[in-house]
């Protein structure tokens, strides 16, 4: 009886984790019931082998070394995109002239995959940190800019009138109404930007780097070290999920004044 109520109460959790556990178990057991042909076996690995590889790479310091390089590029690129994207988004939201002047670039860059610029960035900045930072920046800046802009544009006219009626100047208007109103948008933009930034790091390191987790994946693939590839993929997966959840947490905390949390899809 008690077990049954426990199951209904935690149904979503049980089913969710259960599915992942079963998937991993099935994957692990493939060699037990199916003998892979030689050619395929080269590309196959199991979760336990991936875990072993992870442990080894952790011990010999490989992961730490690559992680550090990737983290620097990620943080620098994302930081730069915040520093540029937020003020520009605010300005574009408040100034119609600036909006009209920049709109063609923002719209077309945002709609096109920024990754195509990678070869040019490598040509200009060489193999190394700078071409990665630029490509991370190019990916992350637009969601931040566009969301900030949308937040500013979405300000309720009545609230603006209320604040103006108390004689507020442009700066007070910004502080009291425009910024708080944009905050949920900015955080949602940050969530998208993090995804784009990680994509930038991965792809940037595939081609424009001799270090970093992306490089580790690419070079392992060329040497048929499939377990190492999955170690890299799993690290990126874990980082993305953790960062996304952290921002969602921030989103729901900041939105405590809202009747319901902002739409996340």
């Amino acid at each position: 009886m008690k077990l049954k109520t426990f199951c209904t109460e935690h149904e979503s959790f049980i089913l969710g984790t259960g599915f992942i556990v079963i998937l991993l178990a099935l994957w692990e057991s493939v060699p037990l019931w199916y003998t892979l042909p030689k050619g395929m076996a080269l590309f196959f690995t199991t979760p336990s082998k991936v875990a072993a590889a992870f442990q080894q790479l952790l011990i010999n310091g490989e992961i730490e070394k690559h992680f550090y390089v990737s983290a620097i590029a990620f943080l620098a690129g994302l930081g730069l995109s915040i520093v540029v994207g937020l003020p520009l988004g605010l300005l574009m939201g408040r100034s119609q002239t600036l909006e009209a002047l920049l709109d063609p670039y923002v719209t077309s860059f945002n709609a096109s995959p920024r990754i195509v610029w990678l070869p040019l960035m490598i040509l200009w900045f060489g193999i190394g940190i700078w071409s990665k930072i630029v490509i991370v920046f190019a990916g992350a800046v637009f969601p931040l800019l566009i969301n900030t802009y949308a937040g500013v544009k979405n300000v309720n006219r009545v609230l603006v009138n209320v604040v103006r009626s108390f004689g507020a100047n442009e700066w007070q208007l910004m502080k009291v109404v425009v910024l708080p109103n944009s905050l949920p948008y900015i955080i949602a933009g940050l969530r998208l930007a993090i995804g784009r930034a990680i994509l930038g790091v991965v792809v940037g390191e595939f081609f424009g780097s001799s270090q970093g987790l992306g490089y580790m994946i690419a070079s392992a693939a060329t040497n048929y070290k499939v377990d190492v590839v999955f170690v890299g993929v799993a690290i990126f997966m874990a980082l993305s999920v953790i960062l996304t959840l952290a921002v969602k947490q921030l989103e729901s905390r900041l939105a405590s004044w809202r009747p319901e949390t902002a739409k996340t899809f």
Binding site: N156, V158, L159, N161, F166, V176, N181
Partner: peptide, 12 residues
């Protein structure tokens, strides 16, 4: 000072 029809309260 004005009292607004749509209240005009800052939701945050």
């Amino acid at each position: 000072a004005m009292v607004f029809q749509e209240f005009g309260l800052l939701p945050w």
